[in-house]
């Protein structure tokens, strides 16, 4: 299937008081037309920075971001402005991302101002249409964000992101601030809109259950790296990276009497991205660490079609299998 987005060796460094912070460390992935790619990982692993770098809301330090065949990192400001119509973002905290002084209709119409689209009459119609689309009552056109609850505010965030009819949307923790009953409403809305408008999503969350539910494929991030990427079902049935396994085993399952995964308790905390460990970034906490893990970073290896893992346990096994295949012919 056609790739809408191809990210190659994307890197983002921040210069901090403590030194160079590599928030995104040479990651590559593709997103196919009409699919949802989930990005999951714990606080500070670089999910938001990845999402923003892909839209150039933060300027990547290195790499390529190929959107519909063009490397947008080569675009000048004017071409980028045009490209942004097709590439939008929904943020986690609907409150912080909405201007408190603007009414709901002004917020949703803001992108039309920026791009000087539609005369006022048509604009009103457009806003109403968007409000219908995301399930907001027309009564709220003149309300202000602070008068609304989190679920409705997030609907406004969705409406604004969709105003310019984008093809691709980064959803950065769009439901993390919401209660489960409201979270479920917004997840269903995001899914319905994808069907109706043929959208392609990158969906970011620290909640693996949410990511697995909404995504076709999932990338697991740790300390600026993608450690595993595969179909969302496989991430649960066949997790191969020790970090993915630990992450899965740490999630409390809301069921009783079912066979639960043996819990792998990781020692210690996530190391700082300012002085990441040399070798494999997970080596300091990995229950299976080997001497070579401290020396070199493991390559991304395809363990089964569409399932890649960055771990020596996997690359060694694949290497042995390939060698076995050669000797057997």
């Amino acid at each position: 299937m056609e790739n809408v987005l191809e990210v190659r060796e994307l890197r983002k460094d921040f210069h901090t008081k403590k030194g160079l912070l590599r928030a995104v460390n040479d990651i590559s992935f593709t997103v196919r037309k009409g699919e949802t790619l989930g990005i999951v990982g714990e606080s500070g692993c670089g999910k938001s920075t990845t999402g923003r770098a892909v839209l150039r809301l933060v300027e990547p330090t290195a790499g390529e971001v190929i959107f519909e065949g063009q490397d947008i990192l080569q675009y000048n400001a004017r071409s980028m402005r045009e490209a942004r119509k097709d590439m939008q973002i929904i943020f986690q905290d609907p409150f912080a991302s909405l201007n408190p002084r603007l009414s709901i209709s002004q917020i949703i119409a803001e992108p039309f101002d920026v791009y000087r689209m539609f005369p006022p009459r048509e604009r009103e119609e457009k806003v109403k249409e968007l409000m219908r689309l995301v399930g907001l009552s027309q009564k709220l056109v003149n309300a202000f964000p602070h008068e609304l609850d989190g679920g409705r505010r997030q609907r406004i965030g969705v409406a604004r992101a969709l105003a310019l009819n984008p093809k691709f949307v980064v959803c950065d923790e769009p439901v993390s601030a919401l209660d489960v009953s409201i979270q479920a409403q917004i997840l269903n809305l995001i899914q319905d809109l994808q069907q109706r408008l043929h959208l392609t999503y990158v969906f970011i969350s620290h909640d693996l259950s949410v990511v697995k539910h909404i995504s076709n494929r999932v990338a697991v991030m740790y300390l600026g790296k993608i450690v595993e990427i595969t179909e969302s079902r496989r991430i649960f049935t066949n997790p191969l990276h020790p970090y993915t396994q630990a992450l899965l085993s740490a999630i409390p399952i809301p069921k009783v009497g079912v066979q639960k995964r043996r819990r792998i308790i990781l020692e210690g905390d996530v190391p700082s991205p300012v002085n990441p460990p040399s070798g494999c970034i997970f080596s300091g906490r990995c229950p299976f660490v080997m001497p070579k893990c401290l020396e070199a970073a493991p390559p991304m290896t395809e363990a089964e079609p569409g399932h890649s893992v960055s771990c020596f346990l996997v690359s060694d096994a694949e290497g042995a299998r390939a060698a076995g295949d050669r000797t057997s012919d």
Binding site: V180, A184, Q191, S209, V210, K212, H213, I251, V258
Partner: peptide, 12 residues
């Protein structure tokens, strides 16, 4: 309302 980790549920 809770997404399931171990089952395939199309819609919440």
């Amino acid at each position: 309302s809770i997404p399931s980790l171990d089952e395939e549920v199309e819609r919440l």
